[in-house]
Computed example of a mutant assay.
Amino acid sequence: MKTRTVYETRLVPHTVGGRTRLVPDEVAIELPAPPRDWDRTVLTGVTAVAVLVLTACVVWSTASVGGLLSRVVIEPAAYGAAIVFDLAWIACMAVEWLARYDPDRARLPRAAGHVALLVAMLAVGAHGWIAGYPEIGIVGAAVSGLAKGLWTVVLRHQTPPLDARTREFLRQELAEAGASLALIPVQRQVLRARGLVAAEQAALPAGPDTPDADPDQSGQDTDRPDQSDEQPPGPPMTIKDAVRTAVDSGLTEPDRVLAYVRKRADANARPDTVDRYIRLARMAG
């Protein structure tokens, strides 16, 4: 039976001068070696062959299509555009692999990949035809088709089969996660809009036409001079937090920001302190 050596570090007692301490010591342990996974070995070899074929395909297709386009444009631009023909169907194939658990989502990249592959094959064939070697053009176009077919076989083999109920379960899981993710920017927009409204209401002075104005002050209790207007709803805020909220809500004038801070955070806030926090908030934003 084959074995493999595994090194483990253990604490062992060690005595020096009559004093014993536990010190780490590396110990070699012989364990049975697992049998070789030939399926994984073969799959790794096939994947390596597919990568090699794909690389050769990209080189050949780029050289062929680049030679075709270089008849009308400079070579750097021609070969830069030529590589797009293969990268398009390769990218579509990668997206198809990412959507392997959802057949509905994989259908579009699969169709787009076939179209992009057909365009690339036609371009390679056209180069051979124009050069006077139609046979070479047909064989060169087949290189892209073989590379695409080989990768399709490899990816299909690595895609686990799923029954209809399991696919529906996964689809609902992704839909629920996607809905939670989509709520994040919406909540940000809502909070930003509410902050803007609150900042505007706090910064604008109450006039005779505003609903907050109260021209009749006769009902105020004169026996309690310390009685003041109610603070706006919400948790208490520091001057820095109030300035940040005002700036994020779109207030740019220092006077309006100061009015909001004095109403929301500190009625005795100093203008120079508010200005400093405004600069910090703009730099952070």
Rank of each mutant, 00 (worst) to 15 (best):
D86G: 10
T159W: 07
L11Y: 14
G137F: 04
D275T: 14
Q217K: 11
I138W: 06
A111Q: 12
L98V: 09
P254L: 07
T252V: 14
Y79G: 00
V243E: 01
T55Y: 13
F85M: 04
G18H: 02
L52I: 06
G113F: 04
A265T: 01
A142M: 13
L122I: 13
S144N: 06
E200M: 11
D39Q: 10
A267D: 07
E176F: 14
A112M: 11
I138G: 02
R40N: 04
R21D: 08
P215C: 05
A82E: 04
G178Y: 06
L181K: 15
M237N: 04
I83T: 11
T47M: 08
M93N: 06
G17Q: 04
V154K: 03
A141M: 10
A177E: 13
D212E: 15
A269C: 00
V261E: 00
A141P: 01
R256Y: 08
M93P: 01
L122C: 08
D102Q: 10
A126W: 10
L146C: 08
Y79N: 00
E135R: 11
A265L: 02
D241S: 13
L11P: 01
S249I: 05
D248K: 15
G219P: 01
K240L: 12
S64K: 02
Q201T: 09
H14E: 13
G125D: 00
Q187N: 11
R188H: 06
A111G: 04
A147S: 09
W60G: 03
W89T: 00
A111N: 07
P32N: 03
P103C: 05
E135N: 06
V23Y: 07
P13F: 10
P32V: 05
L31G: 00
G195R: 03
W129R: 13
Q158F: 11
T47V: 10
G250V: 01
L11I: 09
R10W: 13
E168Y: 05
